[in-house]
């Protein structure tokens, strides 16, 4: 049974707001008394994903499902899609424009970080249509 379902629009044109959704999820999980180590992993994984939706996806949405034993994060954008997912998973591989680097991102660490902090991660991306990214973080995880 789901404890909480949260939905967010992620604006694509305002980098200063990137992270609002992740910050809100973090606050709500704290209020629920969720395991702090799991909260931190949810926050970081979702934040990197949210940044990607802004940088690459031109905005999109986030749907977060909170269960007592796990948090499922779904990030959806209608951007250009990822042509080579395997390459995108490599540390240091980035297609982000230079102006993103001046903001502290775009070093090719986003997807590797998301994989590191989530217990499960699936990418469903179609070039020209967009990307769906699903991450699961367990409340009690060997990664914590």
């Amino acid at each position: 049974m789901s404890m909480l379902e949260l939905k967010y629009d992620i604006p694509g044109d305002d980098f200063t707001r990137a992270g609002e959704a992740s910050g809100d999820v973090k606050q709500k999980l704290k209020k629920l008394g969720y395991n702090p180590a799991a909260i931190r992993r949810v926050a970081i994984a979702m934040y990197e994903g949210e940044i990607n939706v802004v940088i690459h996806g031109g905005g999109g949405e986030a749907i977060v499902d909170v269960d007592p034993d796990k948090v499922v994060i779904l990030l959806i954008d209608h951007g250009p899609g990822i042509a080579d997912v395997e390459k995108a998973m490599q540390e240091g591989w980035s297609t982000a424009p230079d102006n993103v680097r001046s903001l502290g991102f775009g070093a090719g660490m986003g997807l590797p970080n998301m994989k590191k902090y989530s217990d499960e991660m699936e990418i469903d991306s179609v070039v020209g249509k967009g990307t769906k990214l699903r991450m699961v973080v367990y409340a009690q995880s060997p990664k914590a």
Partner: peptide, 28 residues
């Protein structure tokens, strides 16, 4: 992203970057 790559008990962030993502990163 390098800050976010090392999760364990970092309490202080020193940076020359000035945008809101610095605070977001510290928050997460």
């Amino acid at each position: 992203s390098d800050v976010l790559a090392f999760v364990k008990d970092q309490s202080v962030l020193l940076t020359g970057l000035l945008n809101p993502q610095v605070v977001r990163t510290a928050e997460m």
